[in-house]
């Protein structure tokens, strides 16, 4: 029992470390891509570590099995969500660049 709690404490500390630096990156970087890298990747790692800690602390088999299923599906859904956001940033930056290029052409004419 005590081993489980120590392992959960280690996972909690690792998750806190990555989460705090993810927050720092979210406020320190200037462009949306770098913010997406810092926030999404470090946030995923922090939440993953927290879920591992909660899996170790689960009171019964039923809740433990559910937390395990959530853990596996989180590995699939987290990169899918960040990929959707990344594609949106890519397309919107493309649109703004084209619009500014068109404006420049208008001025030169």
């Amino acid at each position: 029992m005590i081993i489980r709690e120590i392992l959960a404490l280690i996972a909690f500390l690792v998750g806190t470390f990555f989460g705090i630096f993810g927050m720092v990156g979210l406020f320190r970087f200037r462009d949306p891509y770098s913010r997406l890298h810092a926030g999404s990747l470090c946030g995923t790692t922090a939440v993953f570590s927290y879920l591992v800690a909660l899996l170790l602390l689960a009171p019964s088999l039923a809740s433990g099995a559910r937390v395990f299923i959530i853990l596996v599906f989180f590995l699939i859904s987290a990169p899918t969500g960040s990929s959707i956001v990344g594609k949106f940033i890519w397309e919107s930056e493309d649109a703004t660049r084209q619009r500014s290029a068109m404006k420049r052409e208008d001025k030169s004419l």
């Binding site: 630096f21 720092v24 470090c42």
Partner: peptide, 22 residues
């Protein structure tokens, strides 16, 4: 899972040092 932790560590290093090359 292993590469998730490894890559987060690299991103944390980039956050601290601040030199990126996107």
């Amino acid at each position: 899972v292993f590469s998730l932790y490894q890559s987060s560590f690299q991103v944390v290093k980039a956050v601290i040092s601040g030199n990126t090359n996107p």
